[in-house]
């Protein structure tokens, strides 16, 4: 297999689903792993509002339970990203990607602010509708080529996946990883709690990078 990811260094088979570690996927896996460890050990920040033209400032109180819940969601998101980085099966990749999407919703939805929750809801709607092109793309790959394994599809003699099916997969991942689009408006980042919110961006970036590798390989 000669893809853009390079030769697989080693494989971890779970029945039909084979996890493979190429230099590319291994790099992304280690990135997700390091960030998950950082999320586990780091302490969340406090957000401070400062009143312009005066000395008054206000530290926002965040309850411990909320922080615990968001840390849990961030760790789950890190684990889901790790799985999505190394899985060698298109349908499994689609499932891991939707797990990343729902974890991203969970990280933001715990914040007690109506504005932030509205953003989380809209993002969740996009993530939910993105499962349609994602699963449809994976199923059409199975129908047109007769296999779901990326390793099999990467073989030189394998049937090529049609272009529009690749487009469906990419559109689905774009919908699940919609969080960076919010960076423009910073609605999501108005939510307090630094390391957990960054996990949204990192996981979306990782699944984008991975879907490019998948689409170029199959």
């Amino acid at each position: 297999m000669i893809g853009i990811g390079g030769q697989p260094l080693f494989m971890l088979p779970f029945g039909d689903i084979v996890l493979y570690f190429t230099p590319f996927t291994l790099t992304l896996f280690i990135l997700a792993l390091v960030f998950t460890v950082l999320v586990i050990i780091s302490k969340p920040e406090r957000q401070i509002d400062i009143v312009f033209g005066g000395d008054a400032y206000l530290a926002k109180e965040i309850s411990i339970s909320e922080m615990k819940f968001r840390r849990f969601m961030a760790i789950a998101c890190g684990l889901a990203s790790m799985g999505a980085m190394v899985t060698g099966d298109i349908f499994d990749f689609a499932l891991f990607t939707s797990l990343v999407g729902i974890c991203n919703v969970g990280i933001v939805a715990a914040v007690k602010s109506r504005h932030v929750q509205n953003a989380a809801y809209q993002y969740g709607l996009v993530a939910m509708s993105a499962t349609v092109p994602l699963f449809a793309g994976a199923a059409i790959v199975a129908a047109t080529t007769g296999t779901l394994s990326i390793l099999e599809l990467a073989l030189p003699g394998a049937t090529k996946v049609p272009l529009f099916v690749k487009a469906l997969l990419t559109l689905g991942v774009m919908g699940e990883g919609m969080a960076p689009f919010y960076a423009a408006k910073a609605e999501m980042f108005r939510a307090p709690g630094a390391p957990y919110v960054i996990m949204c961006s990192l996981s979306s970036l990782l699944i984008f990078l991975r879907v490019i590798e998948v689409v170029l390989t199959v």
Binding site: G15, I17, F91, D92, L95, G106
Partner: peptide, 16 residues
């Protein structure tokens, strides 16, 4: 058995 990892991820989604 053969696609057991799918079911693991799927029940994890339900759990989250």
């Amino acid at each position: 058995n053969t696609r057991g990892l799918d079911t693991v991820v799927e029940t994890t989604i339900l759990f989250i």
